[in-house]
Simulated assay, not measured.
Amino acid sequence: MARLTFLDWPVLRQLRGADPTGRGTAVTSATTRGMIPRTATADGVADSVCPYCAVGCGQRVFHKDGKVIQIEGNPDSPVSRGRLCPKGAASQQLANSYLRQTTVRYRRPFATEWEDLELETAMDMIADRFIASRRKYWEDEDEHGRPLKRTMGIASLGGATIDNEENYLIKKFFTAAGAIQVENQARI
Rank of each mutant, 00 (worst) to 15 (best):
E143S: 14
S97H: 09
Q101L: 13
R100D: 03
Y137F: 14
M125P: 00
L117R: 09
M123A: 14
R146W: 14
G145D: 06
G145K: 06
G145H: 00
K149S: 12
A111W: 00
D128R: 11
F110Y: 14
I126Y: 02
R107Q: 04
L117S: 00
A127Y: 14
F130Q: 00
L99Y: 04
W138I: 09
I126D: 02
W138Q: 04
P109N: 06
D128G: 10
D140S: 12
R129L: 10
R108E: 11
I154M: 05
E115W: 03
A89N: 14
I131F: 09
Q101F: 08
R105P: 01
T121I: 09
T103S: 12
A89S: 06
R134N: 09
I126W: 05
Q93F: 03
R100S: 03
G153D: 05
M152D: 14
I126H: 02
G145W: 02
A90Y: 04
M152T: 15
R107I: 07
H144L: 11
M152H: 11
R108M: 09
D116N: 10
M123T: 13
A111S: 10
R146L: 14
P147Y: 05
R107Y: 02
D116T: 15
Q93I: 03
F110K: 07
S97K: 04
W138M: 03
K136D: 08
S91M: 13
A132Y: 01
P147K: 03
T103I: 04
F130Y: 07
Q92H: 06
K87D: 08
A95F: 05
W138V: 06
E115T: 04
A122G: 11
D140Q: 15
W138H: 08
H144D: 15
E143A: 12
A122L: 00
K87E: 06
N96H: 07
D116G: 02
N96I: 02
A95R: 07
A89K: 05
I131L: 15
R107M: 14
N96R: 03
R129G: 12
A90W: 01
G153H: 03
D140T: 09
Y137S: 06
M123D: 02
M152Y: 13
D116Y: 04
D128N: 13
R100L: 01
L94C: 10
A111H: 05
D124A: 15
M123N: 10
L94W: 07
T151R: 10
A122Y: 03
T151H: 09
M152S: 15
M123V: 13
K87F: 11
V104L: 02
R105K: 09
D124Q: 12
Y106S: 00
E115I: 08
A122D: 01
A95E: 04
D124I: 10
E141T: 12
G145C: 05
F110A: 07
D142H: 07
Q93D: 13
S97Q: 05
R105Y: 08
R129H: 12
